[in-house]
């Protein structure tokens, strides 16, 4: 838990407080980045970028959200920025993925593994993926997700529900040995 006063100390230039603050959120920030992006290297890049942004924006943190949720918000943006950048440099990524090394051949072996779920999460739209990641990897409530995504609770629910429904369909396909798309 980030304690009251840490942010203030960090903001005043206390390095120890700043390091403690970043240390506190680095795990959750990394986890979000990892599941938003689907690979370790991007996750490391995105979460370091997120921590830097947290530091730079510390002066604008007004305490209207919990610090942890605010940090998640920044992590999501950092992950989305990297994901969009990757898409620009690899325009055909989405089409390549299903027939790649982890494609059809290994579908049977991978049945029911975390890799299936992970791959499926990556196929979700940004907002759906974000809602799912915050719900399951951060164990957030609707309200907390809404705060992190800066969206009304109703919108959050529809992203989460739609995301889960899509995952249900895709994961059923895997089970039947079908292809990804």
């Amino acid at each position: 838990m980030v304690e009251a006063g840490w942010v203030e100390d960090a903001r005043r230039g206390n390095r120890v407080a700043l390091a403690r603050l970043l240390k506190e959120v680095e795990g959750p920030v990394y986890r979000t980045a990892y599941y938003m992006l689907g690979n370790e290297q991007d996750a490391l890049d995105a979460s370091q970028e997120a921590l830097l942004r947290i530091y730079r924006k510390l002066s604008s943190f007004r305490g209207e959200a919990r610090f942890e949720t605010w940090a998640q918000r920044i992590a999501i943006h950092a992950a989305i920025d990297i994901s969009r950048k990757r898409k620009q440099t690899l325009p055909y990524k989405d089409e390549i993925e299903p027939s790649g090394s982890s494609g059809i051949n290994s579908t049977v072996e991978r049945r029911g593994t975390a890799a299936d779920v992970h791959t499926a999460i990556n196929r979700l739209q940004e907002a759906e993926r974000t809602a799912v990641v915050l719900r399951y990897l951060q164990d957030y409530t609707y309200d907390q997700i809404a705060e992190a995504m800066e969206m009304p609770v109703g919108t959050v629910k529809s992203h989460l529900f739609r995301g889960r429904k899509k995952l249900k369909g895709w994961l059923a396909d895997y089970k039947e040995g079908g292809v990804l798309s």
Partner: peptide, 9 residues
């Protein structure tokens, strides 16, 4: 989804 690994850097 609940069972997804708890990754750490």
């Amino acid at each position: 989804l609940d069972d997804l690994p708890y990754v750490t850097p």
